[in-house]
Amino acid sequence: MTRLFVSRRRFMGIAGVAASTVPLAGCDMLDGLLAGDDPVRGFLASANTLTYRLQRLLIPVDRLAPEFSESEIRQGQRPNGSTDPTDPAYLALKDAEFAAYRLNVSGLVERPMQLTLDELRNMPSRTQITRHDCVEGWSCVAKWTGVPLARVLDEAGVKSDARYVVFHCFDSMSLGLAGSAAYYESIDMIDARHPQTILAYGLNGSALPVANGAPLRVRIERQLGYKMAKYIRAIEVVSDLSTIGGGRGGYWEDLGYDWYAGI
């Protein structure tokens, strides 16, 4: 007959000892290696560059993110992050229903511009029903209307050494003990010129509400929500991100999130 290498009783003993060590294997022993500027974390984070390169290779430049039908708009767009900025400059504009709002376009452009909301609304528009994916894990389908960013960039005339578009925002976010900083974000020229990348002023058929980024926010449909800056004050075209904010290309990036958020 086959023989038992381990009896049931002895097995339970061994298994009990093994199981009791599981919590010890838990996770604070890795915390040091993964903190802030530890080189181990830096090495692991380099996988994001690999993901960025491969997705740029795999996804045709103008390939659209999936769009949905009206029937799939089943709820309002969930507001997240800043939902009611209290910065004085923003409050002054909001009180006058953004009549004095100007979108500042500067940096590596031939013709720096200041655009009113009416000017933006009179430019060719695009409406798209897309899925907003938050880095936290949830998704929400909504209809966005706005002017393609490529159109604004063309009017301003982008210089040949331009590599990134930076969005500067009205809302300040906490940096913990380091005080606070204005929200900002950045994308490469491929996403900046993507047909679905719009400066949105409309949501689900109405004017963009304050909670969702009024008067202007950007939609970058092939990346996660934190890339899609709200309360946009200015657009700056640059060749280098290291001199802006914390130097990593965005408010969340400066706190450790990946710059490329297509995953």
Partner: peptide, 10 residues
């Protein structure tokens, strides 16, 4: 779950 891959492979 990747919005980029949703565009690549809908």
């Amino acid at each position: 779950m990747s919005p980029g891959m949703n565009a690549a492979w809908p």
